[in-house]
Amino acid sequence: MVRLHHVTKSFKLDEKDTVVIDRISLEINESEIFGLVGGTGSGKSTILRLMTGFVEPDEGEIFLMGQKLDHESKYHLVKDTSMIFQGFHLLSNLNVIENVLLPGRLRSIKKAHNLTRARELLSFVGLEAFENARIRTLSGGQKQRVAIARSLMTQPRVIFCDEPTSALDEEMRGEILKLLRDINQTFGTTIVLVSHDIAVIKTLCHRVAVIEDGHIHQIFRLQPREMAPVSYEEAFYLD
């Protein structure tokens, strides 16, 4: 589904070319939940952006859904993918339903059909009662669920997630991870997840690549765990 072949990427930092990703090769299978884990500055978010085509490699090739990702094809290929961000990236001047409707509007999908689907997805993420709510009134977990509903509007084959739970508390994190698992199991969507949180990776992913200094250190096969989010009281009591 996603394949990187000897991909290298440099950025200008302090007026010096710094290699951030160094000849990485990687293959992610269809319907897999694949994790990218590593410390701050290891290059995992850059790898994610290379996969979406937002950033172009200096060397190497990237294939998305069997097609080569280049400067022309990326605008077409990206439409079959979605991305979920740590900071939610919702438009604050639109309410919940308007944010979810946005991908459909960009593709000129008929209004009635767009609205029906948006409501179905809001129900899927448990926010049907918040249709007309303003974004600023929502909690972090609710905002991320709106972002997830928005990401599902176009039935993406791949969802890229950049630290989707970093800004959330323990309970919210569990809900979002469960939602991502449900999406994978219900729709067969491939999910590529970047996180520095080992617990998140172990809970959700089928495989994980450990990134260090722009290289893949190792790829592990995992057995996703059952999710059992605990409250703070339970966590400290158990300790």
Binding site: T52, V78, F85, G87, H89, L91, S92, L94, L106, R150
Partner: peptide
């Protein structure tokens, strides 16, 4: 970050201007 958001949602440059920038900057 609005530009990356618009790109990942499949927006063209014109759509980025119309649906994202103008919306957020309108006030």
């Amino acid at each position: 970050s609005i530009y990356e958001t618009s790109y990942t949602l499949g927006a063209s440059l014109w759509q980025y201007f119309r649906h994202f920038l103008l919306t957020e900057a309108r006030s």
